[in-house]
Amino acid sequence: MKILFFATLREITHEKEIRWTVPTATVGQLLHALCDRYGPEFRKWALDGDDLSDIIIVLVNGRDVRHAGGMDMPLLPDDKVAIFPMVAGG
């Protein structure tokens, strides 16, 4: 699995892109694991308690997880996961 970090999340994780080889079945499991690895700064963005926060955007192969089961969306080993803090512009 490839995980891409953008904007503020790059400052927090010190990464742009990582290879994720730990078997992970769902988006929820992945986010929890990332919170464990990257700490409370990351958790602040990613989770609201045990739910997906409303200030994070998670795409799996370009698809917003909010339309595919959210935390329960299943993951496959060769998925590309892109994670953004809520951003905007115009």
Partner: peptide, 25 residues
């Protein structure tokens, strides 16, 4: 208090949109 108006746009500018638009194709 909103992450966009509060910090996001100040730190990265509107150009922060490039990557997300690209990732959604």
């Amino acid at each position: 208090d909103h992450p966009v108006g509060g910090t996001g746009l100040r730190v990265y500018g509107t150009d922060v949109l490039v990557n997300i638009l690209n990732q959604v194709g």
